[in-house]
């Protein structure tokens, strides 16, 4: 780990696992330029996550947790540092390779759902399939299966504005799942939902994690949600303040 161990004493220990982590980030930094001032969103974050884990990343707003998740999801690039996904260095990938990672390797769930507003649930879920090279009846069938899996088998032709917030987030989860990635990243997935609906979404995540062995990383500021995961990583001011140790496989 980097310099932060000198400034921030943590209880974190190197996880005692012999197999290779699916995600291995070393000393990630991210600097945004806002006009003349530089914002250091990440100051050197190192993190390892193994296949099949369910990890919560918590921290106050501005702690850099969403920035970290975007980098882990290949939606953004770090200013410096190394990020290996399944042993491949993501920071060195070109645009097309990144697109492929986003399409096949990782499913991303946003706080604000981010669905195509004027397309049906089915079309939204089928979108990653189209970019993966699958379209037509096969794609629709697969998208319908995914919507059924998240409990929306009877809402295929509804548009986002005809669906509740919880239903929209389910569509987004179905979209994240449709190319069968091994990792799902969720950025405050319950942040725009009431607590009952939030619980349903978390139950869905837990079921997916348990039954499909999906690696799940959830960014949240809600301790109740974090408590449902197997491991918590807490960020503060762009650094890992605390990281629970991974259980042996």
């Amino acid at each position: 780990m980097g310099e932060f161990t000198n400034t921030y004493p943590t209880t974190s220990r190197e996880p005692e696992r012999s197999d290779a982590p699916i995600i291995e980030a070393v000393d990630l930094t991210k600097v945004y330029k806002m006009g003349d001032t530089e914002v250091h969103a990440l100051r050197g974050v190192s993190l390892r996550i193994w296949k099949g884990e369910m990890v919560s990343i918590i921290g106050q707003s501005g702690s850099g947790k969403s920035t970290l998740l975007a980098i882990l999801g290949a939606l953004d690039v770090p200013t410096s540092g190394s990020y290996k996904l399944d042993g491949r260095e993501v920071a060195a990938m070109n645009d097309d390779q990144l697109a492929e990672i986003r399409n096949q390797g990782i499913g991303f769930v946003f706080q604000k759902f981010n669905l195509l507003a004027r397309s049906t649930a089915l079309a939204n879920v089928a979108l990653p399939l189209a970019y993966g090279g699958l379209s037509g009846r096969q794609a629709n069938q697969r998208a319908a299966e995914m919507l059924t899996l998240v409990g929306l088998g009877d809402r295929l032709d509804h548009r986002p504005n005809q669906l509740s917030g919880g239903q929209q987030q389910r569509v987004a989860i179905a979209r994240a799942l449709v190319n069968q990635p091994s990792i799902i990243l969720a950025d405050e997935p319950t942040g725009n939902l009431d607590s009952a609906t939030g619980k349903e979404i978390m139950n869905l995540f837990r079921t997916l994690h348990r039954e499909r062995g999906i690696t799940l990383i959830i960014v949240t500021h809600d301790p109740a949600i974090a408590a449902q995961s197997e491991r918590i990583v807490r960020l503060k001011d762009g650094l890992v303040e605390y990281a629970e140790e991974a259980q042996p496989a």
């Binding site: 097309d96 697109a99 986003r102 096949q104 991303f108 981010n114 195509l116 979209r175 190319n179």
Partner: peptide
């Protein structure tokens, strides 16, 4: 722009 970001987030390449 949001739409493009979303399409890229689910795997669209720039030339696509």
């Amino acid at each position: 722009t949001k739409e493009i970001g979303l399409r890229k987030a689910v795997g669209a390449k720039r030339r696509t």
